[in-house]
């Protein structure tokens, strides 16, 4: 694997939290590489650092040591402003509880990340329509989140995550609040995004079924990875 194939590289990353007088080490010199177009499921017990890992990859949190490189850019040294701009251009997020804005329609929710671009209104509308078509929700564009099922809301969240065409999709328990059918639908959609649109995806999950859609699963335990290859 050449350097140009690597999208994510964590080099000796350390992260610790201070809780009162106690210091909890989450990661100690953690290394990880994720190639472009990979689909990685990260599993592990509660408190193992899955969400912290996702936060570090998305530039939401900063490491206490080591380096984080994504798409050739070292992000752990960027200022808050630059990090926000970088995040808008490179990362799509999908959360467990969808986190849609309740007062905005599906289309407006999907349009949110595009407000940070220089696209004109018509261009933004075009991008939004495309994203909603990809998640099969073109006909629900004017519906509010409260008018949609959990699965549909999560599909809107996926459309929001991909609308600005980011390199990396980070999903935090995307099926954690869904029934089995909806969960399979979401995972199938992520799988399509990976295979057909070439999106690199990292999914943090407790759901063993979710792992079956990934190309590989990383088991995180006490700040270390245990990698298992899965049949695609």
């Amino acid at each position: 694997m050449s350097m140009s194939d690597i999208l994510v590289a964590l080099l000796h990353v350390s992260k610790r939290f201070v809780k009162g007088k106690e210091t909890i080490d989450i990661f100690e010199r953690l290394d990880l590489t994720i190639p472009t177009k990979d689909f990685v499921a990260v599993m592990g017990p509660s408190g193992s650092g899955k969400t912290t890992l996702l936060n570090l990859l998305g530039g939401i949190d900063r490491p206490d040591g080591g380096e984080i490189h994504i798409a050739g850019m070292r992000i752990d040294t960027l200022s808050e402003g630059n990090l926000a701009r970088w995040r808008a251009a490179n990362i799509g997020f999908v959360f467990q509880f969808y986190n849609l804005m309740p007062m905005l329609t599906a289309a407006q929710n999907v349009e949110l990340p595009l407000l940070l671009t220089n696209l004109h209104s018509a261009e933004r509308r075009e991008h939004v329509e495309t994203a909603l078509k990809i998640v099969n929700l073109a006909d629900r564009a004017k519906h509010y989140p409260r008018e949609m099922s959990g699965g549909q809301q999560q599909r809107v969240a996926i459309a929001r995550a991909i609308v600005s065409d980011p390199k990396l999709l980070l999903c935090d328990e995307p099926t954690g609040d869904l029934d089995r059918n909806s969960a399979d639908e979401i995972l199938g959609m992520l799988s399509i995004l990976n295979r057909e649109l070439g999106k690199t995806i990292v999914v943090v999950t407790h759901d063993p079924a979710a792992a079956r859609y990934a190309r590989r699963t990383l088991h995180l335990d006490k700040g270390h990875f245990v990698e298992k290859e899965l049949a695609a």
């Binding site: 939401i60 701009r85 808008a88 959360f95 986190n99 990340p113």
Partner: peptide, 15 residues
């Protein structure tokens, strides 16, 4: 608070 967190996650700056 959570929605502000989401906006920032999407790339909206603090300012």
């Amino acid at each position: 608070t959570r929605e502000i967190g989401v906006l920032k996650t999407l790339g909206f700056s603090g300012s």
